[in-house]
Design a protein around this nucleic acid. Structure first.
Lengths: 333, 333
DNA sequence: TTGAAAGCGGTACCAG
DNA sequence: CTGGTACCGCTTTCAA
């Protein structure tokens, strides 16, 4: 089923069918109607591969995420997709599972597809990546990779401030024995959070801390908490790199009979919906994922002449959200 | 950057470059090496659109899901993707948000892309869908749509048995006032669960029940629980259509000061990872999502001559998993 | 307003 | 083992 079949049935040329299908309003209404009918009769749908090959354009955007299972990434995906659909774009997503090799793979695939724009929302990184992306000449937006080059935009979240607020808040509650639970990632948001933590914690006198990492997700969080507690260290507050991992921490604590927040306070990061649904509801730092999604879409579809030509950077400010998983530190043991 | 550029640089024809890129081992090692070098030098990546246009083949599979945010769908996606990658396929996903219109859209898009196979894992349905899919001549696998046609496979879960076991189990615990919380969907798995419930419940003497539906997800679950309880009805056990919604039910109960499972028992369905992480851990029905993912992949890539040519059906058996959210019914109020 | 035809970047068949 | 070349299905001048 192709253009020619439709053309034949409508007694016009393929060029005209193409015009109708692309809404080039130069076609005589009568002709247009005839074509439309043929299209409907034949149940015809254009071959998108041929279309983007011939047109050199592509109304398909790509998004590569580290872990779509983590609601943080998914929420960005969701709003990006909504924006895309609203403006007649399509979005294809790829998951790297924090695997740098897979990241490179996905990027090449997206380039191979000649997507109209590519959002790289990942925590891991690959050296060759930036270079290849630059050469590809595709509009790209990174999330939290500190590189701004022509055609490459950047959206960052002020993690530093987020973590600082958490530490300050906990310190204000009297917590002096802290722990940080993070996840593996070569570079990017995560390590920035961790680094900020190890930078900040010591600035408060008399504060002890320890750090442990594991994979992203409830399982990883639980495992990390287990390792932390098995070491004998007894923090009064545990700061998690994100809410998704905090879920696992809460569980481990619960199973050990440690009460939250009476015995130990726990904080997350991101403010995913689940943060409100777990028990106890999680004190966390809100990151406006919908705003990020919108920004990504804009950056990807901006006129290549202006902003994107230079590559711009936007910083998003996070905000502390206090719920039930934190409380004043108890009497030191 | 195209084949010709590479060919020129390697001093061979485009045909040879193509052979090298496709591992047709008829190329002399020396030549192959030269081509490889040119490819590397030029940082060349084949245009996938052109490739599938010319080749008529497509190593890209598609998966359409109702709600990728629901871990059930995501888990299927994950294993399908893993299988695909392992065998050199790619997977593009689309989300319908339970919207039939969006479903049709996505299907057309996938057909437009001429994907090599399409998995339709959704709860909603569109009349035109089956027809269009059939004409497309693309291998298709449905999840729980009771239609088997040539080239269309079907994977079903024996929901009926799952629900029956839940009801029987709860009845054994003495529960006589039940409630079912489901989500909207025109047809498919969900309504089958609900139907099974309304079929089964009355078969136990003295059993009362009520049903309420809302959107999928914790928010919807919470809202449904709210509506249920606001009506004045006081079930001793609430059966949720899936774990994702049960999360919200647990929260609403908690906020109303109703203890689970002392005051009311709650069950989920699917056995997502989160079911173990919520509080209390959820009694649910396990569905082997990895197995489903594998089955989907197989069905999509099976030799079109055999099985898929006829279209086959596989039934997966679920299994009750008892955790902490259920207990014997207390004294009637 | 419409048609003819030249690509877009590959693949695959046919020679050599 | 390698090159020439006819498409794949659609977009886009260029003419008419």
């Amino acid at each position: 089923m192709n253009l020619e079949a439709v053309a034949k049935r409508a007694r016009v040329s393929t060029a005209t069918v193409s015009r109708v299908l692309n809404n080039l309003d130069v076609v005589k209404p009568a002709t247009r109607a005839r074509v439309m009918k043929a299209v409907a009769d034949l149940n015809y749908y254009p071959n998108l591969n041929a279309r983007s090959l011939a047109g050199g354009k592509n109304r398909t955007l790509g998004m590569i995420a580290s872990n779509l299972e983590n609601p943080f990434f998914f929420d960005v995906f969701r709003t990006l997709e909504a924006d895309a659909h609203a403006r007649g774009y399509e979005l294809v997503a790829a998951n790297t599972g924090y695997n740098p090799e897979q990241l490179l793979n996905s990027v090449r695939l997206m380039i191979g597809r000649r997507v109209g724009g590519l959002a790289v929302i990942v925590s891991e990184m690959e050296p060759d990546l930036i270079l290849e992306l630059e050469r590809s000449n595709i509009p790209v937006v990174f999330y939290d990779v500190g590189i701004v080059k022509p055609k490459i935009s950047n959206i960052r979240v002020n993690y530093r401030r987020g973590i600082e607020e958490v530490v300050k808040y906990l310190h204000g509650l009297g917590h002096r024995k802290l722990a940080f639970i993070g996840h593996h990632s070569t570079l990017g948001p995560t390590s920035e959070r961790e680094k900020t933590f190890t930078d900040t914690a010591p600035s408060y006198e008399g504060t002890e801390y320890r750090t442990v990492v594991n994979q992203d997700g409830p399982d990883g969080g639980r495992e990390a908490a287990r390792e932390l507690l098995d070491s004998g260290y007894r923090p009064t507050a545990i700061i998690c790199v994100n809410d998704f991992m905090a879920l696992g921490v809460l569980r481990e604590l619960r199973e050990r009979g440690m009460r939250v927040p009476e015995d130990v306070s726990v904080t997350g990061f991101d403010d995913i919906t689940l943060a409100e649904y777990c028990y106890p509801a999680l004190t966390t730092v809100h990151i406006p994922r919908d705003r990020i999604g919108h920004l990504v879409f804009e950056a990807l579809t901006a006129d290549s002449d202006r902003a994107s030509a230079t590559g711009h950077e936007v910083v998003v400010e996070p905000e502390l959200v206090v719920r039930q998983s934190t409380a004043p530190a108890g009497v030191p043991q």
